[in-house]
Amino acid sequence: MLRWVERFLLDLAAAAIVALGLLITASVLLRITLNSGIPDTVVMVAELMVAAIILPLAATIAARANIVVEVLSQHFPGRVQDCLVILGGVIGLLALLPLLWAGYREAASAIESGGFFFGQLNLPKWPGRVLFLFGLIVCWVRLLVQVVADMRTFARGERIDTETGTNYMQEEA
């Protein structure tokens, strides 16, 4: 289930990248050929950027694509290294809390106040903020599941596998 959600969100992010690329390309082509354009491209691209960056967060966690420095820790005993992996996850869970709280407040206030972007279309502010909150919640849950799983592995006395995260690229291609 979780895996399906992660991949679906990653696909949505891929679609967002296609969409913002097409939007910019189309506005350039319209300008060159017809001296016309697409209103509020800047706002729409910025909103799509939120989707493109935030939705893959859970998949990034699952892929263990978080960048870490192992200069020192690689010399530690295996059990200590695994403790540090768990610690890193716990710090991540804590570091994301203020973001979740503020993200919730922002999304709620954008919906409540009816805030919008000034422009030719006066597009609403809530979609990007709601997407941000949504992507973050899924990411937090994914990280929690990973940390709990790592703790179990550790309790069983086994090593945590940080090398092979879920690979979303080689599944179908």
């Binding site: 891929a14 493109a52 960056i53 893959p56 967060l57 960048i67 690229m169 291609a173």
Partner: peptide
């Protein structure tokens, strides 16, 4: 599509930092 998925993961880990 696989290229776009790779892009998603890579961009997100860069932007996170």
């Amino acid at each position: 599509w696989a290229a776009l998925r790779e892009t998603g993961i890579q961009t997100t880990s860069i932007f996170l930092i």
